[in-house]
Design a protein around this nucleic acid. Sequence first.
DNA 1: TTTCACTTTTAACATTTTTTAACACTTTTT
DNA 2: AAAAAGTGTTAAAAAATGTTAAAAGTGAAA
Lengths: 233, 233
Amino acid sequence: MPAASRILLVEDDPNLGFVTQESLERQGFEVTLAGNGESGYAEFAGTVFDLCLIDIMLPEKDGITLARDIRQLNPRIPIIFVTAKSLKEDRIAGFKVGCDDYIVKPFSMEELVLRIQAVLRRTKPSLIKSEQQQYRIGSTIFDYKNSMLIFETNRQKLTHKESELLRLLCLHLNQVLDRQIALNLVWGENNFFMARSMDVYLSKLRKYLQHDQSVRIENIHGKGFKLVVESDD
Amino acid sequence: MPAASRILLVEDDPNLGFVTQESLERQGFEVTLAGNGESGYAEFAGTVFDLCLIDIMLPEKDGITLARDIRQLNPRIPIIFVTAKSLKEDRIAGFKVGCDDYIVKPFSMEELVLRIQAVLRRTKPSLIKSEQQQYRIGSTIFDYKNSMLIFETNRQKLTHKESELLRLLCLHLNQVLDRQIALNLVWGENNFFMARSMDVYLSKLRKYLQHDQSVRIENIHGKGFKLVVESDD
DNA sequence: TTTCACTTTTAACATTTTTTAACACTTTTT
DNA sequence: AAAAAGTGTTAAAAAATGTTAAAAGTGAAA
């Protein structure tokens, strides 16, 4: 069991800060919360972190400046920016290239956690090497790395999007996967047509899994989807 | 471990300037940022640099003038120009001859870094001598320097473009190589026909590598390609 | 210069992946 | 109950990719 990833969270809104800290700690991260850029910098200078989560709009020392200063200390530290929706396109284009990912307020903890894990998986593979590349869905095996579903002697190759969506469902096994989150993470955007496209993909995944009686993809109306596996204990 | 390459970046847009500086520093370069031609010239006169990255459109002293003045001080310094897309063809043709490479805004940091490395490799081979000239792809050896693929007793000579494309894939081993970036770097332009041409090359590379069961070139629809090597650990 | 060998691009056609449209059905709201 | 919103499914359309072969380009040798 690898040590927990250490996250520096810099957020000036105390409420959002506490809630985020708690949620991330519940997910097994070690989180240090700083309320402004100055103390964020001080924390970073004094401790070793695996990732920084920085609000762009900070009083005094803004997030981008802080990120620059932090990178001065450690050029390779992964940084995720938190931005308000109101930011102009060009401003976004500007900082996009300077960070590993970004998330738009208001965001769900679930999406945040998934983004953090994705960044850590890319940048510090050793930290989450234990992450499984194969998922067991009832008596079906989902080989994510090779985009393959294996049931008895049948092998079904999956396309990239099928594979990404199914992986998200697996990560939420027997829990609800929120529609918006899935759209943001797999399709990158969130409009009517992409939503319909996702429905088509869910239909495909259901077809691939239909031979396995103990498995189904349920819809929670207005919320999302749940990959349900009946336990045969 | 060679010392970091020192880059003089002259860019008047502060946001883009900072972001670019950060990203390059993250890649291990030492970057000095100047906000206009005058201070750029002053910096160059006072310090030793390995490469200059100059925006064409600068207030007061424009990029081309600055480059000329800099070359007066050091005729062999590599220069990369940054240009806006709007520039007229003839203007581009004009400055192309005066620099080692150029990149069109908006660009991705990934592409910029690859271009810088390519220029340094050409002009200051000693600075990145540590760069490997041979890549291991599964049980196949790719000898980039000699444009040769070696598998057991088979040797396959590669053409220049085959070799460049394969090298890019190797640099992104098990990661996605963006289509646009590959096109910009290997073909220099990015249109329908060049894209089709690249597909033909990918097909050729697949054929060369097909004997090696642990190697494949995957397509990520709409994104790019990934050279995947199954680890046999 | 012409020829030859080789590289690269273009064209053509097959296939795969993704999106869009259409229609039936379900759930929630009014 | 009727209307509206949401979902399930299938098929068609559009876009992207894989592959092969012919055409065009290139440079060196005869």
